[in-house]
Design a protein around this nucleic acid. Structure first.
Lengths: 151, 151
DNA sequence: CTGTATCCGAAATGATACTG
DNA sequence: CAGTATCATTTCGGATACAG
């Protein structure tokens, strides 16, 4: 490995794959790369990098298993449609479990599966960070907007 | 604090604020809450919970300061329009710095500001997690889809 | 090279009404 | 309660042309 290669590797991630994606035959285990447009992991990433999906994961992590209506009350502004849709996707990908208790009226509870819990533990800090730094970002906005108003 | 309240607090986050948002006068420092529809932090969160914004932050964290064209090559599938737009937002919120070197042709370099670096360090693990678990999620999908095909 | 401006089709989302 | 179906609207995002 050359000095150059060492330097690039030290910076992080997997630059080789970032160039293009097509002929990564070096390993029997194909490299997945969120930066590559056609990589399956990019599709997953694009799906998870969504406001509602992340809020659902955070809510389940913070408040534990919840019913559909609890989630909707807890996550301000979600419509039933978006909540249903996002939950289905999370369920499909094995992140969330949907359990129906055949009562009347029916009770449906959503909970994190191990995979979803892993992800939620990475996402929750993101939510807290946003709350902690929101004022700072808003302040930066005002400065930026002010500087771009004298036109 | 009742046993019930202790339990709720232990679960995490700030349930009080999750109910509604309007009369949190308990502290001089208003509580920010990403779960509340009208909270400023929600707006910030919605803005950051975006595919392109997150990929830009990850790319800058992984590869260091980059020019516009480098970012576009590194992030597969971004159009100039989306890249410009996302970079402007990140710049406006004080996460990214844009530096113009008045050469010919002009050279523009983007880099993380301290605030953006903080965020990037929370976001990058998310990208790596997605790559590591993508296969698992895809496998879960097949199972889910198979189970919902016999109709 | 690094954008900006505009057009336009596609996709996301909200509102509403209906169902098991 | 927990959805589904449909429609209307908004927003997103790519293509293209033009500019400093």
């Amino acid at each position: 490995m050359t000095t150059e290669e060492t330097a690039r590797a030290a910076i992080g991630w997997h630059q080789e794959a970032q160039q293009e994606q097509g002929q990564e035959q070096e390993q029997e285990e194909l490299e997945l790369n969120v930066f590559a447009q056609l990589c399956p992991s990019r599709e997953m990433f694009a799906e998870l990098a969504d406001k509602w999906s992340l809020l659902i994961l955070m809510s389940l992590a913070a408040c534990g298993p919840q019913r559909f209506s609890e989630l909707q009350r807890g996550i301000g502004g979600v419509s039933r449609k978006m909540l249903t849709q996002s939950l289905r996707t999370l369920e499909r990908d094995g992140l969330v479990q949907r359990t129906v208790y055949p009562e009347t009226p029916p009770r449906v509870v959503y909970d994190l599966l191990p995979l979803g819990r892993e992800l939620a533990e990475l996402v929750s800090p993101l939510g807290r960070w946003t709350e902690q730094r929101a004022r700072q970002m808003l302040a930066a906005r005002e400065v930026f907007d002010a500087a771009h108003t004298e036109a």
